[in-house]
Amino acid sequence: MGAVAWLPMSAQPLRFFSVRRKSTRKGSTMPNDLQNEQNAGSASQWISETLEPRGCLGIPAFLLVTVVILAGLAALAALWRMSRESEDLAQRKLRLRSVRLEPLLYAEGPIRLEDLQGKVVLLNFWSTWCPPCLMELPHLAEQYRKYRGREGLLFLSVSCGPGPKEDPEEIRSHTAALLANQQLELPTYLDPDFVTRRAVNEAVGFRGYPTTLLLDRQGYIRRVWVGFDRQMPEELDRLVEQLLTEVP
């Protein structure tokens, strides 16, 4: 087997070729003048005799590989930074247009927009495949234990899938395995058809995982966190206590 070469073919995908070593018989070298029809015919014969197709990689597939590599590098850069954004929205009077959450694990029942009325709501979106989410998870579970049963507070943890088409059973399986491994009993919900995330995106923009929203008793979004750092639980505690004491 000889050297490997890439050769673009007109109106065809890129083809992967293996060059067979030839003897010095006539016709084994590439003709110099491809403008001449006779020489062009000889060139075509040389290509067919010398290059043997060994498979095919279409241009779309090649581009897909490139995109995947670039996306992977971007994800590594984001993971390296582990940045966290926090935005105070108290003055903007923004509300969620729709909420539809279904119980996934340890949760009692479905949640709709009307269930949020008159309550301080902590709404967190996370995923088992997200490294910052895994860093945040023990702190999130601690927040839940601290506020469990607290009157006027609704704690909503939403486990999300990795792509545009989420498989509820796959999310359930991965979430259950992770919580069992971490020995956590965190009531967790599913966001079918991205209904709640779309509402978040319309209101304040949904920029990634983990995302945490804090809503006051009037339903206004008071704070949004994107990402995680170890100062967030302390900041969250202070704001939750503040909102619980506010008169609706």
Rank of each mutant, 00 (worst) to 15 (best):
W6L: 15
L122D: 02
Q218S: 15
N36T: 09
R150G: 00
R54W: 07
E241S: 14
Y220C: 08
R112H: 09
Q143P: 03
P13F: 02
R97F: 08
N181C: 04
A78W: 11
N32D: 11
V4Y: 10
L179N: 05
A74W: 07
S48N: 09
L186W: 00
Y144R: 07
G72A: 03
P233C: 02
L7E: 11
M82P: 01
L239R: 08
E166L: 05
T196Y: 01
I221D: 00
G163V: 01
E151A: 12
L57W: 13
W225H: 10
S42L: 14
E85A: 08
T175E: 00
L57T: 08
T24F: 12
R84W: 08
E246G: 02
D193K: 12
L57R: 01
R97T: 15
L34N: 09
S10N: 08
P132N: 05
G152I: 06
F228C: 03
R97I: 14
R217G: 04
D167A: 05
G109D: 14
D33N: 13
A43G: 11
S83H: 11
R197W: 02
I47R: 11
G118A: 08
L96F: 07
N36W: 03
L137P: 03
E87K: 14
R25G: 12
D191K: 00
R223E: 13
A90Q: 15
L70C: 12
I111E: 03
G149W: 15
T188S: 14
E49W: 06
E136D: 02
S159F: 01
P248S: 13
F228V: 01
A77Q: 11
Q183N: 14
S10P: 13
K22F: 08
V67R: 09
I171M: 04
G58R: 09
E202C: 04
E37M: 11
E136A: 08
V99G: 00
L76M: 12
P210M: 04
T128G: 07
V99A: 01
C56E: 13
R20M: 11
L134R: 15
E246K: 03
D167Y: 02
F194H: 13
V200F: 04
Q231C: 00
E142L: 10
Q12E: 14
D237G: 06
K93C: 10
E37Y: 00
S86G: 12
